[in-house]
Design a binder for these strands. Structure first.
Lengths: 199, 199
DNA sequence: CGGTCTGGCTAACGATGTTAGCCAGACCCG
DNA sequence: CGGGTCTGGCTAACATCGTTAGCCAGACCG
């Protein structure tokens, strides 16, 4: 069964080095000094490889987020940074629809946990923040912003807007706050920050 | 030159009826009662077709948004509705990176205008809201939320969070407010809404 | 020793985007 | 009317893609 992991490792290597179009069964077989049809002794289809990489991406992103859940700003900064550092993997994992049955259970929840923790267990708010982070990253990766766009400013606004939903965690208490009531009117600083001045 | 438009129309028809995988040069040729290579008399590549559809999507979405720019809630609702009604077209247009050179000038700006208008010309805030709307839609289309997720609640949070950046337009003045200073501390209702109670 | 399983192999299939090259007809200009 | 060019079809073919079928060497085990 270890060969299967080698296949997926090779796929990830090719993906990161040469982009998604290079991840080809024949190219992948080359990397393993094998013929393409032999791959099917270890995996059922290319889709399965993509699924495995998606799972891998979810795990890694989840781990990174878990280590950066001090407050909203650092959390989303970690999200953005990871996505920009592993754009191919992020794209592959985000664009494909999850086939939850195949996904190892818990991965999804683990990736979501830090976000939930920060919103005090407010699932809907966590989803909104997730959407925001994913959307900004996705648009950035897809080249949808003009080349000179000040994306840091956009992220700053995003963080500022959602500050109402988040109380910074008391220092030194890294455990989850899932289950606590939402933060409620912890009014954010009323947007006099530099990022808010129109250019 | 009109045949080119017919090709793109046919591509859109197939896309919407049978999904992205069905948009094949041969299938497309069938639809036009033609042989596949003949398509190349009217277009240079399949990529060009996708670019044209992307442009088309941008135009239509822009038009819809322009007609729904009363306030943030109706604007993003329109965004979401359009994307869910034309998921294939939206995906195709959002996933592909823009090749701005080929894009007809002004389309991008036109699509962005309603958003900019609502943030009072605050570009960074507009981008954040765009990211949020795109992200939520993209995750929804990609099946990333659990089947029973209450997405309306997530959208409500999203709107609530960004309310600080938006003053509702004075009734009966549909012209743009681009250029005005940002809304500043127009404090949002402090999140006592039903959507904010944790389930 | 014999049987089974593992993990390679070659050959091949159908589908994809795309190119080369031919040709009928429309259309225009002298 | 005659000839040239342009338009828009066509067939044949190519390389590449994911994938299947079927063969076989070797390891391993009873």
């Amino acid at each position: 069964m270890n060969r299967r992991a080698e296949v997926i490792n090779a796929a990830e290597r090719i993906l990161e080095r040469e982009g998604p179009d290079a991840v080809t069964m024949r190219r992948l077989a080359d990397e393993l000094r094998i013929q393409a049809p032999s791959l099917y002794k270890h995996i059922a289809s290319k889709t399965e490889i993509e699924g495995a990489l998606q799972q891998r991406a979810l795990e890694r992103l989840g781990a990174v987020l878990a280590g950066a859940s001090a407050d909203l700003a650092t959390l989303v900064a970690a999200y953005r940074r990871w996505a920009l550092e592993h754009p191919r993997l992020y794209e592959l994992s985000a664009r494909h629809s999850l086939d939850r049955p195949r996904l190892e259970s818990g991965v999804e929840a683990a990736a979501a946990a830090p976000l939930l923790s920060i919103t005090g267990g407010n699932i809907a708010a966590a989803r909104a923040i997730w959407g925001l982070a994913h959307g900004l990253v996705d648009l950035e990766l897809a080249n949808r912003f003009p080349p000179n766009a000040d994306l840091d400013a956009a992220w700053a606004h995003a963080i500022n807007a959602f500050a109402i939903y988040c109380t910074p965690k008391p220092e030194g208490n890294p455990t989850s706050r899932v289950g606590l009531p939402p933060a409620g009117p912890a009014t954010p600083s009323p947007c006099a920050r530099s990022c808010c001045r129109t250019a």
